[in-house]
Structure formats: C-alpha cells, structure tokens
C-alpha cells in the first residue's frame, strides 16, 4: 500500500492526489511523486505554497499597485 497514490496537478496548478491505479481525468497530469497517501500529501504541502489558481494569481498581480 506504499504506492497507493500519485500527486497530480491541473492547468491552474492546483494539486491533489489520485489512486495510483486510476487514470488521470482530463486536465490532470502527474507531478511525479508516487507513494502512500500521507507521503503524497506531505509532498503537496512542500510544493503547493500559494493555493490560488494560477489565473487568479496572475490577475491579482496584474492589478497590483
């Protein structure tokens, strides 16, 4: 059960986890990490530092004074 999940990411750079034996739904790609649920979530905790979707981050930055 140590490789039960994969870390996945969508075009908005939102992260989540997928059971490792399921195909990615459209718009989701593997981030590269495979492991237990806890290990995958811990990886996400490290790399996903801004939870806003990419388009929102960019639109806020564009409007910043």
């Amino acid at each position: 059960m140590n490789d039960a999940f994969r870390v996945v990411r969508n075009d908005e750079e939102q992260y989540s986890i997928m059971p490792s034996d399921m195909m990615n739904p459209p718009g989701w790609r593997d981030e590269g990490t495979i492991g237990s649920r806890a290990a995958c979530l811990a990886r996400i905790g490290e790399v996903w530092t801004d939870l806003r979707p990419k388009s929102l981050r960019e639109s806020v930055a564009a409007r910043a004074t």
Binding site: Y15, M22, W48
Partner: peptide, 14 residues
Amino acid sequence: GDAELTAAKFVPDH
C-alpha cells in the same frame, strides 16, 4: 494556508 488538507478534500473530478 493548508495545501495538504485542500489536496485531500478537493480531488480530481473523474
């Protein structure tokens, strides 16, 4: 501020 919980509760829509 909680990426792990967000990723655990909001999952890919298959």
